[in-house]
Write a protein that binds this DNA or RNA. Structure first.
Length: 801
DNA sequence: GTGACCTCAGTTTTT
DNA sequence: CTGAGGTCAC
C-alpha cells in the first residue's frame, strides 16, 4: 500500500500497531483517510482478517463512505468487514440474541415520533396531559437512557421529575409488552445482553481484534461502555475524533469520553492531526481564535499550507431582510465574477431552521436557485408512517401502538367508543385470568431479565371482540371489527407465506386497507401528493429488495428505522446553493460559506448559561467557520423580526474574537456599494444554471411583479396565502408552499372572488372555483390547468399595506 | 368527518 | 406571527 501521500502524523496513526490509539483529528485534517488506510493496512499486512475488524460510525453516510473507500483500497479483500453505525451494529447483534433480552427477532423499532406519541398517550391515561408535555418528559427519559440509567436512578425532585418517575416505568413496560425498542434501547439491550450473558460479550470481544470508532467526541456513556466491552480483550481500540467539534452534547454526547480517553486507556498513543487541507490561512486563523477561548479542550493548533487567502468579511445589516438580501446578492456577484464557481460551491449556514424562511425569500427574489437541507424526512410523512404501521403489525403482531394507529385509518367506523370497549375487554381479561401481570410501576426495571408472557395482545382482544366476546359492542361495530380483523389476517397470511415480494405486500396493504381508495376518493392536492409518496414507498421497498435479496419484512422495517431516508445517497445538486443549519453542515465543506445571524441570543443561542452550553455554542461556531475553503462571510443584523416582535440584537461575541488581521477592512458604505454593484452582473460571466428550483424563482418574480403593477387596468389589492397543510390527518402535502391571489377585498366580508387568478408556488397558475372558510382554515378549490382541481387549505393574510 | 375556533409553544436532531 | 394540535358542535 502506498503511504506516500500521507503526512507524518497520519502515517503514524495508520501504522500504529497494537494497543489503544487516540487520533485527534482537527477539521479537514483527513481523518477518514486515516481510518480507511488503517483498516487497509491491517488487512494487507495480515494482522487480521476483515471480519475481525469492527468499524463504528455515527451516520449511515459515514459508514457508506468508509465501506466504499476501503473497498477501493482493498477490492474484494475488504469483504466481511463490520462497518456500520452504532445502531445498525447493535441491531445486528440484537436480532441474533433477541430472546436473551426479552425480545423476539421481529422486534419493532420506535422512532422519536413514535416515542413522543407513546409518551403522550401515557400522559393522557394518567390525566397529566394538560399540565405536562410529552416532549419534555421524553427528553428527560432520553437523557437518562443516554447515560445508561433506568427509572430507578431518578431522585425525587420537582414536579416534572415526579411525573417522569411515573411515566418512565409505564413507557418501558409498554415497549416490552409490544416487543419494541426505542433508539436508545437498541444499544442498551446489547449492553444488557453483554452483562447478563458474558459469554456473548466474550465471543464478540474475541472476534473483533481491532475496533475503530469514528467521531468519538459524539459518543455517549452507553456507547463508550459498548466499545469497552468489544475491545477489552485485545485492547486494539482506535478512536478518531475532535473534541472541538463536539456539538451534540444536548443529545447525550459526552465530551469527556474523548477528553479522558488517554487516562482511561493506559499506554494509549495519542496522535494529533493538525494540518488542515481545506481552508485558507485567513479562515483557519479566525476559527482557531474563536475555539481557543474554550477552556476544556485538547490543546492543538490547526495549520494550513494555504497561506493568506481572501480576508473574512463581516457584514452588518440593518435588519434580517437586508441581511438575507445581501447574502443572495453576494452569491450572485461572486458566482458571476468567477466563471469556475457554480452555485453548488455556496452554502449559507444558520443556527436555527426558522432563519431559512427569510433567506429563501431573498434567494427566490433574486432568482438564485437553492436547496434547503433538513425538514421532514420521507419516512416521517404521516401516510408513509401509516402504511409502515400496517407492515409493522404484520411483522410484529404485538405492536399495540401501531395497531392503534391503523385501526381507524383510513376511517372504517371503528370509533373511540368501540375501541375503548375492546381495550376494556382486554384489561378485564388480563386482570381476570391472572395470566398477564398488569402494569405495575413498582416492579419494573429498565431492562427486564426475563420476558413476561403477555396473556392477550391488543390484536387478540380485537379478534375476540370481532368474534363477539364483548357484549357491550353493538352488532354493527362488531361487524366492522370483524372486517378489519379479516383484512389484517389476510395480509398477514400473505406476509408469512413468504411467497410475496415485500413491495407487493405493501401494495396489497395500501389497497386492502382501503387507504388507496380513501386518498383517491377526495381528490385534493394533498391526497394526490400522498398517493405519490406511497408509490415512492413501494419503489423504495422494491429497491431495498434488489439490494438485499431474500430480505424479510422486519429487515426492511429496521432499515427504514435506522437509515431514515430511503437510502437515497444525498443528491448532488449541481446548480443550487445550499441552505442549512450548522449541525447539518458538520462533515461537509464548501468553497464559499456564509454564516448568518451572528448575534447574541441567536448565535450563541441564549439558554441556561451553563458553562457546558457556552462551550458547545463556541464549538458550533468553530464547526461552521471551518466548513469554508476559500471565502467566509459572516453576517449579523441590527434588528430582526422574531415571532411578532422586532428585537435588537448585539453582534455575536464570536465576531469580536476574530483578530483584525483576518478581516477585510472596509467602511460600511463601501461594503454596501460593492454589494450593490453585483446586482445585474449575474449571468454574464458564469453560465446560468437552469434547474427545477428556478421555476420557483420565476414564479416568485412574477408574483412580485403582479402585486406591484396591478392587473388589467384596475389596481387590485393583493394578499398572500401561506401554509397549506392538511389538518387533522396531518398530511404534509403542500406544506411550505405559498400562493398569491388577486381578489376583491371587502373589509366586512373578506372574501375571494371566484374566477380570480392564483399563483401557487408549487402548482403554478390557477383559477379559483370556490372557497370556504376564513382564517387559518380557509379552503380554496383551485383549478390548475392540466392538473385538475385541487383544494388548498391555507391561511388568509390581510394585505400588508 | 368536517368546519370553526382555541391554545400553546416556538434550538440543534447523526440513530 | 405561524404551525400543530385539540375540542366542540353539527
Amino acid at each position: 500500500m502506498n503511504l506516500d501521500h500521507l503526512n507524518p502524523p497520519q502515517r503514524e496513526a495508520v501504522l500504529h500497531g497494537d494497543g489503544p490509539l487516540l487520533v485527534l483529528a482537527g477539521a479537514g485534517s483527513g481523518k477518514t483517510r486515516v481510518l480507511t488506510h488503517r483498516v487497509a493496512r491491517l488487512i494487507e499486512e495480515g494482522a487480521c482478517r476483515p471480519w475481525e475488524i469492527l468499524a463504528v460510525t455515527f451516520t449511515n453516510k459515514a459508514a457508506r463512505e468508509m465501506r466504499e473507500r476501503t473497498r477501493k483500497l482493498l477490492g474484494d479483500a475488504a469483504e466481511g468487514l463490520w462497518v456500520g453505525t452504532f445502531h445498525a451494529t447493535c441491531a445486528r447483534i440484537l436480532r441474533r440474541h433477541a430472546e436473551r433480552v426479552g425480545l423476539t427477532p421481529a422486534f419493532t423499532i420506535y422512532d422519536d415520533d413514535d416515542q413522543r406519541r407513546l409518551i403522550g398517550q401515557i400522559l393522557k391515561s394518567l390525566s397529566l396531559s394538560e399540565r405536562f408535555q410529552a416532549r419534555e418528559i421524553l427528553s428527560k427519559i432520553d437523557r437518562g437512557k443516554n447515560a445508561g440509567q433506568g427509572p430507578e436512578s431518578l431522585s425525587p425532585g420537582d414536579w416534572v421529575a415526579d411525573v417522569v418517575a411515573r411515566v418512565w416505568p409505564i413507557y418501558e413496560a409498554r415497549l416490552r409488552e409490544e416487543d419494541a425498542v426505542d433508539f436508545n434501547d437498541i444499544l442498551l439491550r446489547v449492553l444488557d445482553l453483554f452483562e447478563k450473558h458474558p459469554e456473548v460479550a466474550q465471543e464478540l470481544d474475541r472476534k473483533f481484534r481491532y475496533v475503530l470508532v469514528d467521531e468519538f467526541q459524539d459518543t455517549n456513556r452507553v456507547q463508550y461502555r459498548l466499545v469497552d466491552h468489544l475491545s477489552s480483550g485485545w485492547k486494539n481500540l482506535a478512536v478518531v475524533g475532535d473534541d472541538d467539534q463536539s456539538i451534540y452534547g444536548w443529545r447525550g454526547a459526552d465530551v469527556s469520553n474523548i477528553l479522558g480517553f488517554a487516562d482511561d486507556h493506559p499506554g494509549a498513543r495519542v496522535v494529533k492531526l493538525e494540518q488542515n487541507y481545506r481552508s485558507t490561512g485567513m479562515i483557519l486563523g479566525a476559527a482557531n481564535a474563536v475555539i481557543a477561548r474554550n477552556p476544556q479542550r485538547h490543546p492543538k493548533t490547526l495549520w494550513t499550507a494555504r497561506d493568506g487567502g481572501v480576508p473574512i468579511v463581516i457584514e452588518t445589516a440593518d435588519d434580517d431582510r437586508v441581511e438575507a438580501d445581501f447574502i443572495a446578492r453576494t452569491i450572485r456577484r461572486l458566482c458571476a465574477e468567477d466563471s469556475r464557481r457554480t452555485l453548488s460551491d455556496f452554502a449559507v449556514l444558520y443556527r436555527t431552521h426558522a432563519m431559512s424562511r427569510q433567506l429563501e425569500e431573498a434567494m427566490r427574489a433574486l432568482k438564485v436557485p437553492y436547496v434547503v437541507v433538513g425538514g421532514q424526512p420521507f419516512y416521517a410523512r404521516s401516510e408513509v408512517k401509516d402504511i409502515l404501521a400496517y407492515l409493522r403489525v404484520m411483522a410484529n403482531p404485538r405492536g399495540a401502538f401501531d395497531l392503534e394507529r391503523i385501526i381507524n385509518t383510513p376511517p372504517r367506523g371503528i370509533g373511540d367508543t368501540t375501541f375503548d370497549r375492546v381495550k376494556a375487554y382486554r384489561e378485564a381479561r388480563a386482570a381476570g385470568d391472572g395470566g398477564r401481570p398488569r402494569l405495575d410501576a413498582e416492579n419494573l426495571s429498565l431492562l427486564p431479565a426475563v420476558e413476561e408472557p403477555v396473556a392477550m395482545t391488543l390484536l387478540e382482544a380485537v379478534q375476540a371482540c370481532a368474534a363477539g366476546a364483548e357484549p357491550t359492542i353493538a352488532a354493527a361495530a362488531r361487524k366492522k371489527l370483524a372486517a378489519f380483523v379479516a383484512m389484517l389476517e389476510e395480509l398477514r397470511a400473505l406476509a408469512l407465506g413468504g411467497k410475496l415480494r415485500l413491495g407487493d405486500l405493501a401494495i396489497l396493504a395500501i389497497e386492502k386497507s382501503g387507504y388507496k381508495a380513501w386518498l383517491e376518493g377526495d381528490g385534493s392536492m394533498e391526497s394526490h401528493d400522498r398517493l405519490d409518496n406511497l408509490n415512492e414507498l413501494v419503489s423504495a421497498i422494491h429497491a431495498f429488495e434488489s439490494d438485499h435479496p431474500g430480505a424479510v419484512l422486519s429487515e426492511f422495517l429496521e432499515s427504514v428505522a435506522l437509515t431514515g431516508t430511503a437510502d437515497s445517497a444525498d443528491g448532488v445538486a449541481k446548480g443550487e446553493a445550499t441552505l442549512m443549519t450548522v449541525h447539518a453542515a458538520k462533515g461537509l465543506e464548501y468553497p464559499v460559506v456564509f454564516i448568518a445571524g451572528l448575534e447574541e441570543g441567536i448565535f450563541p443561542q441564549r439558554r441556561e448559561d451553563t458553562l457546558a452550553a457556552e462551550g458547545e455554542e463556541r464549538r458550533l461556531c468553530y464547526v461552521a467557520m471551518t466548513r469554508a475553503m476559500d471565502r467566509l462571510i459572516l453576517t449579523h443584523a441590527r434588528q430582526r423580526r422574531q415571532f411578532d416582535e422586532i428585537r435588537r440584537n448585539a453582534p455575536s461575541v464570536f465576531l469580536a474574537e476574530i483578530p483584525q488581521e483576518h478581516l477585510a477592512r472596509r467602511p460600511a458604505a463601501a461594503a454596501r456599494a460593492s454589494a450593490g454593484s453585483g446586482y445585474g452582473g449575474f449571468g454574464r460571466g458564469a453560465p446560468q444554471p437552469r434547474r427545477g428550483s428556478e421555476a420557483a424563482a420565476d414564479e416568485f418574480d412574477q408574483r412580485v411583479d403582479e402585486g406591484g403593477g396591478g392587473g388589467a387596468g384596475r389596481s387590485q389589492p393583493r394578499t398572500t396565502l401561506s401554509g397549506a397543510g392538511l389538518r387533522g390527518a396531518g398530511g404534509a402535502g403542500g406544506a411550505g408552499a405559498t400562493a398569491s391571489v388577486t381578489y376583491e377585498y371587502d373589509q366586512d366580508d373578506e372574501s375571494f372572488r371566484v374566477g380570480a387568478r392564483v399563483r401557487h408556488s408549487k402548482f403554478g397558475e390557477g383559477t379559483i372555483r370556490s372557497f370556504s372558510g376564513r382564517g387559518q382554515d380557509a379552503r380554496l378549490v383551485i383549478h390548475f390547468p392540466g392538473q385538475g382541481e385541487r383544494t388548498i387549505v391555507a391561511r388568509f393574510i390581510e394585505p400588508a399595506d
